[in-house]
Design a protein around this nucleic acid. Structure first.
Lengths: 351, 351
DNA sequence: CTGTTAGCGCGTTCAT
DNA sequence: ATGAACGCGCTAACAG
């Protein structure tokens, strides 16, 4: 903190002088209190508050050769998945006596800002970095490792190859749970709506949904892709569905994302489709944007908090355990059944 | 970053040696490129990448006497208001060439964790700190200033007295806009539901609602308080409302928070109340939890992004402008009308 | 248990 | 334009 009013910064040796002890003793009071006689300790502590001394963590980090802080770089703080991760990570971090600082690259900032923050954290001598980046971009993780740092990759694709721990969400299971839920409601003509096969998470969800259908005789599923996963994509596909005969319309829909589901509902309700009577609808992830839905939306919930916890535990192990070996953790999503798929009477949470 | 495999860290003098120049020249290449002949500059840069040199920001901060980073401490990353603030602040920060790091104290962490992060940031020699804390707790801001640091207080009460810039949200206007919106829909028996007068934001909202009613002849408003602002509080009050005769039930409700509104709806719909036909409902802030509503909820939106921008601009001015004087900025909320207050046909955004 | 000292890695004077 | 030397504030050895 540079002083607004050029007030001379109080250093440890100022404290030492004022407390009539040596520099090393002050350092000991701060870092190894048990090594100092309590009488002296009290005197030093009193002097510290009297003078308003504050540690300089730059000097501290430099001399000690490392900080007691870990970092978390996220692509989008507006996405609740990543804030859930932050809470999970923070709770683990603080209960282990360290500090967690976060940086938000932001979807609009794109890869450059992401890379800038990664570099910034690398230069900060952090103990380790939690990285939640775009699908398969491991370049940041590689830079961290090249610089000799520790990193745990969060929410990556199944097939990434990195020299680091990873925590993934089982998106295939997302799709499976969603479709299986619809099948259990007696739906047979399913549709998977939204996204492109090229998008890893979408492809996995679709695969999961198809697996559920395959396990279930007499049911079918079609893929209705869209370029993006916004509400307007949902509306566009809704119009295609509405133009069919009722007998050809799906009676169960797995939306690739909740905004897509919102769009579907917005455009299908005015066409006379009822949820869930005509179509049971469930969205494959829950990014807090479903608030405008006329009918509460069933969703597959992402285990963000658990991802944060697991990631930080992995990182702490790498920091503290000399025998640490990298691990890949996979976490399961859960089903939150709401009215859009089961009607008002049977709402609840399953697994 | 301490090295997992004890790989000797590459320092500037390593680079200097390898590039056949002196330490000072390498420093100049990094900090004042124009002072160095381009030929030499290229050679140094090449050596840097070849050796995988990364700056040590601890040493840098120590020698330079300050970092190029600002901090943001928030009470609750799960509250969208604070992530909106983060985005606004981040966009201003990065477009001015600095870095923003955030720390989440967390509601569960409480004041101690908040204080810990503030101290941590103080010790980090940051250029300044953005603080979004509990209502009136200025102790953190005071500690920062005592340590000679810069701070901007966000989302504070009207009457706080601090030696710092502040950015506030006009909660009184929130209540006013909400009530005025209901009155415009022809509602006359209003109720303000949820919270305690002791809570600053609630008191202001209630005052605003009362002002709107006072300006409007023939209308009345009653205050139905609750201990907290959760959905269950809304449900509890709903039962009190349902036990009245229909003629005595309000025809317009301002909920102090959107969870309260959700609770109201949950308990009132089964009693046969329709929204907005019987009761027009609007919530006074929008913390992303309204997703479970059967009817899309009208809300007063908090200008979080603008708060972040304004706050960071204030902080940057304090950092760069020697003639900086503290200012108090007040930002206005906006009305998002949805079906819970106006029915399906006239939904839109006003001001 | 206490005091002394040598760096940690880098930015910034100065001379050249 | 370039290089040598000093010090930022602190930690961790070590000596006493």
């Amino acid at each position: 903190m540079s002083s607004p009013q050029p007030r001379a910064t109080v250093t440890m040796s100022d404290v030492a002088k004022a407390a009539q002890v040596s520099l090393g003793t002050v350092s000991n009071v701060l870092n190894h209190p048990e090594r100092v006689r309590s009488e002296v300790r009290e005197r030093v502590l009193a002097t510290i508050t009297r003078l308003g001394y504050v540690r300089n963590s730059a000097a501290r980090t430099l001399a000690a050769g490392g900080s007691n802080t870990v970092g978390y770089v996220m692509v989008d703080i507006a996405n609740s998945l990543y804030t859930d991760v932050a809470r999970g990570a923070e709770d683990v971090t603080s209960s282990s006596g360290m500090y967690l600082v976060a940086a938000n690259a932001g979807v609009r900032g794109g890869t450059p800002r992401q890379a800038a923050y990664i570099d910034h954290f690398i230069e900060d001598q952090l103990q380790g970095i939690l990285l939640a980046v775009f699908d398969n971009d491991v370049s940041g993780a590689e830079r961290i490792r090249r610089a000799g740092g520790r990193v745990v990759l969060l929410d990556v694709a199944t097939d990434v190859d990195v020299d680091a721990c990873t925590v993934r969400i089982d998106y295939e299971l997302s799709g499976y749970l969603a479709a299986e839920h619809l099948l259990r409601q007696g739906r047979r003509r399913l549709a998977f709506v939204g996204g492109l096969r090229e998008i890893h998470a979408v492809a996995r969800r679709l695969a999961g949904a198809e697996r559920a259908v395959a396990e279930h005789g007499g049911a079918s599923i079609e893929f209705l892709p869209s370029g993006d996963l916004q509400a307007e994509d949902g509306r566009a596909i809704a119009h295609r569905i509405a133009s069919r005969s009722r007998a050809e319309a799906p009676d169960g829909i797995v939306a690739a994302a909740d905004l897509v589901a919102t769009g579907l509902m917005q455009a299908l309700l005015p066409e006379g489709f009822r949820f869930p009577q005509d179509i049971a609808l469930i969205a494959c992830d829950d990014n807090q944007s479903g608030r405008d839905n006329a009918v509460p939306l069933s969703t597959i919930d992402l285990p963000g908090y658990a991802v944060g916890q697991a990631g930080m535990n992995l990182l702490l192990d790498e920091i503290r355990n000399p025998e640490h070996v990298h691990r890949r953790v996979v976490l399961a999503p859960g089903l939150s059944a709401r009215e859009s798929s089961v009607g008002r009477e049977r709402v609840g949470r399953e697994r």
